[in-house]
């Protein structure tokens, strides 16, 4: 591959991280008063805002309602200023429709939709700054927003992307690494049970390496889940102290 050396001989990556090291995750829950649940999450330089409305009555076409469970409606979008090149992204382009569908599948695996027949849960996610791993940051932000809305879930859903360079899996890719021709894999995990909610990979990889890559992704997801857990507990304590007094 030309130019960029993604992993030095000393085992450091472009931004100075080790191979298995995650980027710094910072998050806040309950950022909006009007929504049922909301969260803001930064993972390195990727920043996302997630908002949840519902469960509520079906809006729009009522025929989509399911008699035994809730419908999850996801919408993913990117701000015009989120990438290096300023670009207007009209609502409903191919890429964001696909991403919305992936988010929907991920959350259908985790949210206990059967408790809310004939209703709808809306999850809106917006990328404010994009620096790789958009899907995983969206999933992590949306998880916090769903928890903030008080919607029952089996477990957290944590997601992470991993790449494969020089026989080494790299956790939590940034944009430079993603665009550097690495075969990357995105994985969403329910960490406690170890169930996989979604795996996505559109690059070529030798079959023998797949297992190590998934293994590395799962460890990275568990790392993310620890951080999210801390955020939720902190938020819970602050809120419960206020309401107790």
């Amino acid at each position: 591959m030309a130019g960029l050396e993604l992993l030095t001989d000393q085992g450091y990556r472009l931004d100075g991280r080790k191979a298995t090291e995650l980027r710094k995750v910072q998050a806040r829950m309950g950022v909006f008063a009007q929504a049922d649940g909301s969260a803001y999450l930064e993972q390195g330089n990727t920043k996302a805002l997630a908002v949840v409305y519902g469960p509520h009555e079906m809006r729009g076409s009522r025929s989509r309602a399911l008699h035994d469970r809730a419908v999850i409606n996801c919408q993913y979008s990117m701000a015009t200023f989120s990438t290096a090149e300023r670009k207007r992204r009209p609502h409903g382009d191919r890429k964001s429709t696909e991403m919305s569908l992936h988010l929907k599948q991920t959350f259908e695996a985790a949210v206990m939709t059967q408790l809310f027949p004939r209703s709808q849960i809306d999850i809106y996610v917006k990328i404010l700054q994009s620096d790789g791993g958009n899907y995983s940051v969206c999933v992590n932000a949306a998880t916090l927003a769903v928890i903030d809305a008080g919607i029952p879930m089996r477990d957290y859903v944590c997601a992470c992307t991993v790449g494969f360079v020089d026989e080494t899996p790299l956790a939590d890719l940034c944009y430079a690494e993603e665009s550097g021709g690495v075969s990357s894999l995105a994985l969403a995990l329910l960490p406690r049970g170890g169930q996989i909610a979604l795996v996505q990979m559109d690059a070529r990889l030798h079959q023998d390496h797949l297992e190590t890559l998934i293994e590395a992704a799962m460890t990275a997801c568990k790392g993310v889940s620890k951080v999210l857990d801390e955020v939720v507990r902190q938020h819970l304590q602050e809120a419960s102290v206020l309401s107790r007094e």
Binding site: L190, R192, R233, Q237, E238, S240
Partner: peptide
């Protein structure tokens, strides 16, 4: 800055998270 955030409530056992 939430007013009078008492430390006593930290580490309460009856607070749980999903899972």
């Amino acid at each position: 800055n939430s007013m009078s955030l008492s430390v006593s409530a930290a580490g309460r056992k009856d607070l749980v998270v999903p899972g």
